[in-house]
Nucleic acid binder design. Structure first.
Lengths: 224, 224
DNA sequence: TGAATAGTGTCTTTCAGACAATATGCC
DNA sequence: GGCATATTGTCTGAAAGACACTATTCA
């Protein structure tokens, strides 16, 4: 900080948070987008977000957006990266702190907020053209998600509290984009010691019921 | 973005970049700090930083600070995290985007910039009390550095272009804080394929000269 | 020739990956 | 009994980790 006590002598940028909300639905990784109702990029799809209020933390702003747009609370949320190219918003200098959130699939209803026409889920492999630098932001979020999946228990964010091992495996396969060997996957997950079997089984479907597991900690933990 | 085209209707926070400059000197990991010459936290040590200008990107702002404070260019620089607690600066709402940089040990001269009394290196295991939330920022930078060291070639940032394998090992030992087996270390580094031997040897010292190596890419590369 | 650092190989253990048959519950 | 999914073990190869002696140069 090489500044004086007077903050007013410096021009100030606008600061927003953008929140990428991911879920798995219909066997695909999906992200919530809103259709912009106003310029710039009117009618273009965009990552939901909004201005940071002067009295709220960045994470609080992200959680507020998350509640407003997706109606969820208590979900995994992590800061991704801050994007601050001076040209990224044609209206002026806007720096955005991007967050990403993971929500379990439980028929979420997205809400089109004030300035949005529409809100819906898009599979990440079939994205429309995005507003601002949102394509780049999404790209970076996907990389983070893939890499964290490999060395942490982050998958808990996409699953209900109790789940079948085959569901967990599907989460991995969908995000990594490749099939995994069932025996090796189960062996690894169990020996990592992050899971525990519950006393319940899942009896949906005309077949052998599956043991239900849960993560011991619903908090991010790195492997090894 | 649920905003209108008019950015002026929202109060705007101040935005700074803070830059943690790390180097290895005297067998220790050190970070550059400045002693604040003005309130708040007058006379307290702090991570150097400054306000983001309206026409420069965040990274450009960080590089500018780096040039001003440490007089270096073309060094490893990466965005760390953005800290935005509303109370983190008593002067008002100041959001800071923290970066960290790695510089090779070549007798850098730190410059006390305008509002700083003094600038000097501190070993990270003997830190003074820091201004603002800078202790937390440093903590997070150290974690990032340790973890990136384990799965990337980030060490190149702390070494001159050509170096002895024993110097590379020292970088690892100092940052990870534990001794490593020489044979295993060399085997691993060489088989990773990121290094190449130069035709030069280092003849300083009254002992057998060492082969000099360099990183094939002076750009961050993940292992595996 | 002594001091100081460079350089090198084997064995063991651990982990990842390939691979297929049996078990259980529901209809 | 047939269908659908759950559950389980072995072998192989690669990489990590423990471990100690010889080589080279200079003073």
């Amino acid at each position: 900080m090489d500044s004086g006590a007077d903050l007013t002598q410096y021009a100030r940028p606008s600061v927003t948070v953008d929140v990428l909300v991911f879920t798995i639905m219909e066997q695909r990784l999906q992200v919530a987008l809103i259709k912009r109702g106003i310029a710039p990029f009117k009618n273009r799809w965009a990552i939901p977000g909004g201005f940071v209020q002067m009295d709220e933390s960045l994470e609080a702003a992200a959680r507020r957006e998350l509640a407003e747009e997706a109606g969820v609370q208590d979900v995994f949320l992590e800061q991704l990266y801050t994007f601050g190219d001076p040209q990224r918003d044609p209206r002026g200098r806007v720096i955005t702190v991007a967050y990403y959130a993971l929500v379990p699939d439980r028929n979420l209803t997205l809400t089109a907020s004030t300035d949005a026409r529409e809100a819906r889920w898009f599979a990440v492999d079939e994205m429309p053209s995005l507003a601002f630098d949102h394509k780049e932001i999404l790209q970076q979020a996907l990389e983070r998600l893939k890499s964290k999946l490999e060395y942490s228990n982050i998958a808990y964010g996409l699953l209900p509290p109790k789940f079948r091992l085959s569901e967990l495996q599907q989460v991995y396969e969908i995000i990594l984009g490749r099939p995994l060997d069932k025996r090796n996957f189960r062996k690894r997950m169990v020996t990592l010691g992050l899971l525990e079997a519950t006393r319940q089984v899942d009896k949906s479907g005309a077949h052998r019921p599956a043991q239900l597991y849960r993560f011991k900690k619903r908090k991010i933990v790195a492997f090894k």
